[in-house]
C-alpha cells in the first residue's frame, strides 16, 4: 500500500513535468498547427541555462530559473521569426523538417558548449519531509506545487487578460482574429515565448532529480507528443490531464510491470490510440 502511494506521488511529480512540456507544445500547435519537434531541444536548453547560471555565475536557483525562462523564451521567438514565420505558407512537411533541423542544431550546439557528459544540478531543496507517513524530498514537492501554480497562472493569463484572449482567438481562427484586429505576428511570437518559458521551467524543476545532458529532451518531447494526442492537439486542459495520466501510468507501470520497458508504455499507448482513432482522442472537426 505504501509503495502504491509513493508511486502515485512519483507519478504526480513526473506528470507535472510532462504537463508543463505538453502545454508549451499544445499552445504552439493551437496557434500555428506546427508539431514543433524542436520543443525538446528548448527543454534541454532550459536545463543547461539554469545549470550554467547556478554553477558559473552563482545565482540563486529561482533567479537562475528566471534567466532561463527569458533565454529559452527568446530562442523560441527567434525560431518563430527566422524559421516558422517564413514557412507559414509552405506545405506542412516543410515545417516538420525545419523543426528537425533546429533540433539537430541545438543538440549539437549544447554538446559543443557544455560537452556530452551527464551533469547533475544542485538544488537548495535537498531536505526530506514526512507527510502522512510518506517520505518525500522537498524538490519533488516543489515540482508539483510549482507546476500547479504555473498552470493556474497560465489559465488566468489566457482567460482573464486581453493578451491571453488574443492567443485563444488566434487558435480558434487565425484569419478571423486577424480581421478583428489581432496582430497575429505578435501573438505567434508571444506564444513561442510562453512555450519556451514553460519548457525552461519544466526542465529546471526536474533537472535536480534527473540529470542534464544534450539528449535529455528527446524522450520528454516524444512523450509530450503522446500527451497532446491523448488530450487533443491544441487543447490546454487536455495537455494537463494527459500529462498526469501518462505520469501515473508510467510510475505504476515501472513498479508493477517492468522498469526496463517503462519508456515504451507511452508509445504503445499512442500507437493504440491512433490505431483506434486516427485523428487522436477528443479531436475537434477540421484541423
Amino acid at each position: 500500500m505504501e509503495i502504491l502511494i509513493q508511486q502515485l506521488f512519483n507519478g504526480l511529480t513526473i506528470g507535472s513535468v510532462y504537463a508543463l512540456v505538453a502545454l508549451g507544445l499544445t499552445l504552439v500547435y493551437g496557434i500555428l498547427h506546427i508539431p514543433n519537434f524542436a520543443h525538446g531541444a528548448l527543454y534541454m536548453m532550459g536545463g543547461y541555462v539554469t545549470l550554467t547560471m547556478m554553477t558559473k555565475f552563482g545565482l540563486h536557483y529561482w533567479i537562475a530559473i528566471f534567466v532561463s525562462i527569458i533565454v529559452v523564451g527568446l530562442i523560441g521567438v527567434l525560431m518563430e521569426r527566422l524559421v516558422f514565420h517564413p514557412l507559414r505558407e509552405a506545405p506542412p512537411i516543410h515545417d516538420k523538417i525545419a523543426a528537425i533541423g533546429i533540433l539537430l542544431f541545438l543538440e549539437a550546439f549544447a554538446q559543443k558548449i557544455w560537452g556530452a557528459d551527464y551533469q547533475s544540478m544542485p538544488t537548495p531543496y535537498e531536505s526530506v519531509v514526512q507527510i502522512f507517513g510518506l517520505t518525500i524530498t522537498m524538490q519533488r514537492l516543489l515540482i508539483v506545487i510549482a507546476a500547479i501554480v504555473v498552470m493556474i497562472l497560465l489559465y488566468l493569463f489566457l482567460k482573464k487578460t486581453y493578451t491571453g484572449a488574443t492567443i485563444i482567438a488566434m487558435s480558434q481562427n487565425r484569419e478571423g482574429a486577424n480581421l478583428v484586429g489581432v496582430n497575429t505576428n505578435k501573438v505567434a511570437m508571444l506564444t513561442f515565448m510562453i512555450s519556451g518559458g514553460l519548457a525552461a521551467i519544466a526542465s529546471s524543476l526536474s533537472a535536480p532529480i534527473n540529470l542534464v545532458f544534450p539528449g535529455m529532451g528527446q524522450l520528454v518531447i516524444l512523450k509530450a507528443f503522446v500527451i497532446i494526442i491523448l488530450g487533443g492537439m491544441g487543447s490546454i486542459p487536455g495537455a494537463i490531464v494527459g500529462g498526469y495520466i501518462l505520469g501515473f501510468s508510467e510510475s505504476l507501470g515501472a513498479t508493477y510491470i517492468s522498469n526496463d520497458y517503462k519508456d515504451i508504455i507511452a508509445f504503445v499507448l499512442l500507437v493504440i490510440i491512433l490505431t483506434v482513432k486516427p485523428t487522436g482522442l477528443f479531436s475537434k472537426g477540421g484541423h
Partner: peptide, 17 residues
Amino acid sequence: QDQRMLIFGPILTLLVI
C-alpha cells in the same frame, strides 16, 4: 563527427526555407 549537426542542422532548415 559529433558536431557535424552544428552545420547540417541549419543547412536543413535553410534549405527548406
